[in-house]
């Protein structure tokens, strides 16, 4: 399966989606003006991946900032993951960033069929 590997910028996150090596990660900053265009490639990739997923999918979110439009598409990504058996979210937040921790917990409440593990960095 194709690998998505996007370098992060000041407004878009770093994205790695690599089925063969079992690496699934969105990290950095997400505040693009047009979130739909940026995240569509991620959602499309997940649709393909969902047809034949690995037995285990540990999806890492390690975000520093995201705008509210990104929060909606992050929920879309999490909702897709909820439908993939063996998927799990590793939600990182900076050790003094309570807002990011709370954001993760709120997503966990909404997408209640998807396990979350919280870690600090």
């Amino acid at each position: 399966m194709e690998i998505i590997n996007l370098e992060g910028t000041e407004e878009t996150p770093k994205v790695i989606l690599d089925k063969d090596n079992g690496i699934f990660e969105i990290s950095g900053r997400s505040l693009p003006e047009d979130v739909r265009t940026f995240y569509q490639q991620v959602l499309d990739w997940l649709d393909k991946y969902a047809a034949a997923p690995n037995p285990e999918t540990k999806f890492t979110f390690k975000l520093e900032y995201f705008n509210t439009a990104s929060s909606k598409v992050i929920l879309d990504v999490l909702t897709k993951l909820e439908g993939i058996s063996g998927a799990k979210v590793i939600w990182y937040h900076h050790d003094d960033d309570e807002d990011m921790e709370e954001a993760g917990k709120e997503f966990q409440d909404i997408v209640d069929g998807l396990p979350f593990e919280f870690k600090t960095y």
């Binding site: 003006e33 047009d34 979130v35 739909r36 509210t68 439009a69 929060s71 909606k72 598409v73």
Partner: peptide, 8 residues
């Protein structure tokens, strides 16, 4: 849903 203007 994300609006045409890109807002949530």
């Amino acid at each position: 849903e994300i609006s045409d203007k890109g807002g949530a």
